[in-house]
Design a protein around this nucleic acid. Structure first.
Lengths: 169, 169
DNA sequence: AACAACCTTCACGTAAACGTCAAGGTTGTG
DNA sequence: CACAACCTTGACGTTTACGTGAAGGTTGTT
């Protein structure tokens, strides 16, 4: 419990690209590439032009990775989802420096609209996935019925023909 | 109600690649490419080596497209999901020609296992998507709280500090 | 048989999303 | 200040998933 420690400042920590890579599970090349195509700018640069990332950068990179790996979006789509980082940053600064309640409300409303669009996009994707799952469940039920037919009475409706083949694959 | 018509046989219809492309929304090149990487073989070939596709081929192609566009899987992953078309086809033939109830049961069980794996994969993906949606909803709630703070009593807990910045982006 | 409209198999081109050097500058430690 | 370990910016290579001709054969209709 020493009153002043220089290790683990935590709050204003800036990481170099390799540490960021380790933390996020991305490669340094990928991170630079994301910067190249405008997905994020590092919070700062060192005197020697080293890229320096803060906590919010890490969050953003993890989000990008999640959208890429978990949701399967292309980087172009991810760019659409994140939409205009510059405006976002401007808004942040304006929000912090603004004493005007009305302006703060407008900025928050903007942020809300962006998040709502993200949610809508993600839910649309989930709906399509759900449809596919339902479809697969249907195929599964179909197979189960065939199994039931084999176990119970063999050949209930002989010349049926709704399905060309019993689908054994 | 003529007893014998040559148009619209429907049952054993075989389509050429362009018609298949129109039906599935894929390009002829994509369909040939999918064959190249082993995702499907056309049901038959004409005397002049034209590819000929049946109804089940169309289903399969629509499924592939769905996995690609809706679920965002790579063709390699889709190949894993569809897994061993050759075995599938062998199973179909064996199923049709098998009079042995036990064998039919085994073949159906195999098919069921495959479908179950597909469902599991799709549900895993949906779970990850759900997590992301929940996350986005959390961010949205957070923004709403800030809005509420602006509307109601301004600055309820002054020196709080759990959040470094009010997050206006 | 002629003809358009299909189809075939190469084979090279392309955009996305990085991987992988190369050549040189920067940082932190002894 | 020497040195390893990191970083920088090019710049070319690679994989995936096709697009786009080219050169020639096939089908269906007239």
């Amino acid at each position: 419990m020493s009153p002043q420690i220089t290790t683990a400042p935590d709050e204003g920590t800036l990481l170099r690209i390799q540490d960021v890579a380790a933390d996020t599970g991305l490669t340094t090349r990928a991170i630079r590439y994301y910067e190249e195509i405008g997905l994020l700018e590092p919070a700062a640069r060192s005197d020697g032009a080293y890229r320096l990332y803060d906590a919010s950068d890490l969050e953003r990179l993890r989000f990008i990775r999640s959208l890429r790996d978990d949701a399967g979006f292309s980087l172009a789509q991810i760019g659409q989802l994140l939409e205009d980082e510059a405006a976002r940053e401007r808004n942040r600064r304006r929000f912090r420096t603004s004493g005007d309640q009305t302006e703060r409300r407008v900025l928050l409303a903007d942020a809300t609209a962006r998040v709502d669009r993200q949610i809508a996009t993600l839910e649309a994707k989930r709906a399509r996935l759900d449809a596919m799952i339902a479809d697969a469940r249907g195929r599964r039920r179909h197979l189960d019925e065939h199994l039931a037919n084999l176990d119970g009475g063999p050949d209930p409706h002989p010349g049926e023909g709704r399905h060309p083949a019993p689908e054994a694959g």
